[in-house]
């Protein structure tokens, strides 16, 4: 343990990241540049989220990591172990017990509270990137609030697919000002961004950007009057715990076309099963979801 400074990064780096976080909280949805460090993991594996977590953690924290909702996937397990070793913080798989939750591509189903911080891993922080490749131009578009182009993307979706086909990383407008990429969470999770009691921090390591949503921020998903935003999920209940209100993964169980739908949030699913809820396949399915990684 003595080989590492607390939470791996040196104190000066953590101060620099905290300054970026504070600025991000002061200007919700604005992308703050920061001097992203090399981390002992490849870009794309959550280096932004890890740096934000490192700057946020204190020794008393209880830390949880999820990857697409699951606590037991490779990415989640390695990041959790990383902070167990370098920060010595307690860890947990229970959403309600955690004080800092690092997430990739999901918001937990269990509602968050005021004493929690949710840290997102973000691959591409710029929502306008695929419409306008020039960073100079996208920055200008943000500063001048020129967001017509974002609706061109949604228009294209409807004209090609008959509905807004964007199903993840669905663009949102924060407090009526900045358009923000909520990271690749399914659009099912978008409503949870808004008016959330917890602090939400977004870190993009390769792109060197941090942005944030302070508690109880108004976040609105962009849409058209005649094609309103819809938080969609598979039209099914969880086959393990019977939940009808959680986001589901479709799991192929054999090569005869057999499939089951299970909660993507493993902690939520387990909690429900421990409380006695059952889905149609509860008996023969494993308790963990390692098989679908």
């Amino acid at each position: 343990m003595t080989e590492y400074n607390f939470a791996y990064l040196d104190e000066q780096t953590k101060r620099m990241i905290r300054r970026a976080i504070l600025k991000g909280l002061a200007v919700p949805g604005y992308q703050v540049p920061f001097a992203s460090r090399e981390m002992p993991m490849p870009y794309g594996w959550g280096t932004g989220g890890v740096q934000v977590s490192a700057a946020t953690l204190v020794p008393e924290d209880r830390f949880k990591v999820i990857d697409q909702g699951a606590d037991d996937t490779t990415n989640a397990v390695s990041i959790r172990k990383f902070f167990e070793r370098t920060a010595g913080v307690a860890t947990t798989e229970h959403t309600a017990e955690a004080s800092v939750i690092q997430t990739r591509h999901r918001i937990p189903e269990t509602p968050l509270s005021e004493d929690q911080i949710l840290v997102y891993q973000v691959p591409i922080p710029e929502p306008l990137r695929f419409l306008e490749p020039r960073e100079t131009e996208t920055r200008k578009m943000h500063s001048l609030e020129e967001y017509g182009l974002m609706h061109v993307k949604l228009y294209e979706d409807i004209s090609q697919h008959g509905a807004i086909a964007t199903s993840y990383a669905y663009p949102v407008k924060v407090e009526g000002r900045y358009v923000m990429d909520p990271s690749p969470i399914p659009k099912f999770d978008n409503p949870k961004l808004s008016d959330c009691p917890a602090i939400q921090l977004f870190g993009a390591g390769r792109e060197q950007r941090i942005y944030a949503l302070p508690p109880y921020t108004r976040v609105i998903s962009l849409d058209f009057e005649d094609y309103p935003f819809e938080a969609s999920k598979a039209d099914h209940a969880c086959d393990l715990c019977g939940a009808g209100d959680s986001y589901l993964d479709e799991v192929i169980t054999d090569d005869q076309g057999g499939r089951i739908f299970v909660c993507s949030d493993t902690d939520y699913c387990r909690g429900r099963r421990e409380a006695g809820h059952q889905g149609t396949q509860a008996q023969d399915a494993p308790m963990t979801t390692e098989a679908r990684a």
């Binding site: 020129e146 182009l149 609706h151 228009y155 294209e156 090609q160 058209f224 009057e225």
Partner: peptide, 18 residues
Amino acid sequence: SAGGNVGERLMAVGARHY
């Protein structure tokens, strides 16, 4: 698409009805 190209200016000035 051509429709998107023509619609861009409308959306830029606030049209929100597909």
